[in-house]
Each structure stands twice: as structure tokens, then as C-alpha cells.
Nucleic acid binder design. Structure first.
Lengths: 101, 101
DNA sequence: CTTATATTTGACAAATATTGTCAAGACAAT
DNA sequence: ATTGTCTTGACAATATTTGTCAAATATAAG
């Protein structure tokens, strides 16, 4: 249950890499990476995909941390946050089973 | 499990009101209301609050439809949508019990 | 203390996304 | 054909998010 920043920082440090090195590998400005790892900036979808592929074995972990952070960010201050989450879950399930194509 | 547009349209029609009338009551352009009820525009937080108060007895229903729509919108195309929702739920629960102040 | 290297921070411009408005269109009832 | 309601598309106005740079801070080494 880590946020996207923690997740990415831990993965990078596990590999013993510098921001500069990951940045170079993925063409992402290291200062931007720094902000991402400190949850000061949300990575874009492209950036998360690139990062998740870079840390191969933890691909899904990265994506899920990111998506769940975005969800939390959207409703964290709302009293009805939890109730809305449950409804959203049902809606997603519904879309999954009934979606066209 | 209705979306925010359906919800608002049904409430308005239940009261037998015109877009123009609700618009006048809440200072919202009726063409904008039309788009909102057709899910062509997301209402802003202020607008949802005004609308939810206008349809008093269904206050929470309106808010929850809106919040859940925003959540769905954020992740509906993702394979990991459901997994992310579960994690987000845990994160929200965690924040709820541990929040500062 | 000075240098070297890594990371963080703040400010800002650039890019992107969202919102509100208007004029015109569609539709139904009369 | 006229009236009243709602819808649509295009666009300007606003707001939000993003990336970049220079400067600040931190840490370690000599």
C-alpha cells in the first residue's frame, strides 16, 4: 500500500541507481524524477509505463500504486469518499461485463 | 448506480421543472445544465453542491453519483482498474483513521 | 574548509484540459 | 408557421498540469 513516489524510490535504490541514470535511460529530467519520487508531481501515463517497464518485475505494482494514488487524490477530502468508492467499483464491474467491442 | 447526469435529470423531471427554472434558481446557464444532465460536462464541485442542496432529500445520492463518476472516469480504460480501486479503498481507510488534526 | 556529486526546491513559461457562452439546430405541440 | 424546450458545435476564457532552469541544500571525501 505504498504511494507511487515511495514505490519508485525504493525500486531505484534497490537497483542502486541515481536519478540521473534512470532519467537518462528513460529521457526524463532527473529533477522531474525527484519530484515524482517525492510525490510532488504525478507522473504522466507515459512516464509511469516507461518506469514500470524499467523496473520490470514490479510492473503491476508501479501501475497500481499510480492509479490508486490518482483515485485517492480525487476524493480524499470528501466525507462520502468511501461510499463513492464502493459505487465506483460497481460501476467498473458493470462496465467490464457490459462493455462494447 | 446511476451516473450524475441521469441522477440530476430524473430529479429535475420528478419535480417537473425546466432546465431554465433550475438554472435560474442556481445561476447556472441552462445549456450548461443540459450538458451536465447528458454527461457531456462534469459539473464543478460548487455546481454539484448547489444541485445537491436544491434536490434536498437526495443530497448524498447526487454527491455520490458525481464522485463515483469522477473515479470511474479516471481509470475506466485500465486493465488494473479494479485492483487499483481496492488499493485506493485501503488507502482512504488508512487516511481516515490516521489523518492529522 | 573546499570541492565534488546528488538531490531538492521554487519560480515560471509552456502545454493541456476544462469550463462557460453563444448562436444555431432539432424536436414537439399547437 | 410559431412558440417553447432542449441539444449541439464552436470557440474564448479559465484553470490545471507539466517540464525546465537556476539556485539551494545535503552528503561525503579529501
Amino acid at each position: 500500500m505504498k504511494n507511487i513516489g515511495q514505490t519508485l524510490r525504493e525500486l531505484r535504490e534497490l537497483k542502486g541507481l541515481l536519478l540521473r541514470e534512470v532519467g537518462a535511460a528513460l529521457s526524463i529530467d532527473p529533477t522531474l524524477l525527484s519530484k515524482i519520487e517525492r510525490n510532488d508531481r504525478m507522473p504522466t501515463k507515459e512516464q509511469v509505463i516507461a518506469l514500470s517497464e524499467f523496473y520490470q518485475d514490479k510492473k503491476n505494482e508501479v501501475i497500481i500504486a499510480w492509479l490508486s494514488d490518482k483515485l485517492v487524490y480525487e476524493i480524499q477530502d470528501e466525507d462520502l469518499a468511501l461510499a463513492a468508492m464502493k459505487v465506483a467499483e460497481q460501476k467498473i464491474e458493470y462496465l467490464k461485463t457490459h462493455k462494447a467491442q
